[in-house]
Amino acid sequence: MPKLSVVIPCYYNEANIPVTVEELVANEASFPAGVEFEYVFVNDGSGDDTLGALRRAQRAHPARLRIVDLAGNVGSYNAIVAGLAHASGDCLAVITADLQDPPALMAQMYAHWQQGFKLVIGNRQEREETGPAQALARLFHWLMKHLALRNIPAGGFDYALFDRQVATEVVQLHERNSNVFYLMVWLGFAYVSLPYTRRKRTIGQSRWTLTKKITLLIDSLVSFSFVPIRAISAVGLCLGLLALLYGVYVIALKLTHPNEPAGWTTLMVVLLFVSAFQMIALGVIGEYVWRGLDAARNRPLYVVKNVY
């Protein structure tokens, strides 16, 4: 039977680890007999006792758990790439350590992989979360679907099961400042999407801050879409047309009313508007240039401190 490696990035998940490990192990009963399991926990530079909790769980399940302890915090997506690089399964899955994504869905995902699908996505159709977090998540995935990758499922996802080939391709891409799950879709393999309701977090406090969410949105849009650059060109073309029309108007006004005083207010509005656009344009271009510089440095995505 095949081997399934489950990659779990961890950041300040000390309280989650005992519950998460036991639920994952209990979920093995949902799979066909004989499937071998490997759980690759990646400690992403946590400042609490996440590593200690993982070591204690490993002593309880020595044959199943592998721990990759990173030297510093590199972000969940780079931590996932580190886990993929250290996993040895024929197929792999990625799930969060806070149990907001249901492990029970993994058996259905595995069944679709057995049918030949290289990528199986757990698609968040509903969320138990409410308020600004839900609204921001919906906006993020709407923008990604309509401006970047039109073939991603609505609602977004960060729960997937995929073939070893997909994992190998993602690791070899060595992509920086990107979204590892959207990279899987970008590869072009046919996938199946399974809907589920994302749970509300009940243990610990999320470290997924508003700043990190905005950074992810910018990284994802810039990585998979040229829309921001093309939008600058489109707005610049429109401004140029307006400037031409306004120039014709000013010349006509001068010819018909030679003593008409200059319009200070109009001049300042146009000047401020164009200047603001130029600053925004420079900022968007800077985002692309910075990512090109970051890629040219070729620094490692992560540094592994220890592997247990």
Rank of each mutant, 00 (worst) to 15 (best):
F189P: 00
G263S: 13
V40Q: 06
T130P: 01
V120Q: 05
N73A: 10
D219I: 03
F181L: 05
E23C: 05
A234L: 13
V180E: 15
T96C: 10
Y182S: 07
A26T: 08
N298T: 04
F117H: 14
M144C: 11
C91W: 05
P103F: 10
G247V: 00
E14V: 11
A190I: 02
V274L: 14
V235N: 02
R176D: 04
N179G: 04
N13Y: 09
G156H: 07
Y39A: 02
A243M: 07
R199F: 08
Y191L: 03
R66E: 11
P32R: 08
P32I: 14
L217R: 01
Y246V: 03
Y11N: 02
I121Y: 05
L272N: 03
L267T: 15
R64C: 08
G116S: 12
I121E: 00
K3H: 14
G204A: 05
C10P: 14
V235F: 06
E28F: 11
N306W: 03
V269A: 12
V35N: 10
G240E: 06
L143E: 08
L149W: 02
L271G: 11
P62F: 01
L255S: 09
W290V: 07
A137G: 12
S225P: 06
R64W: 06
R230K: 09
Y39P: 02
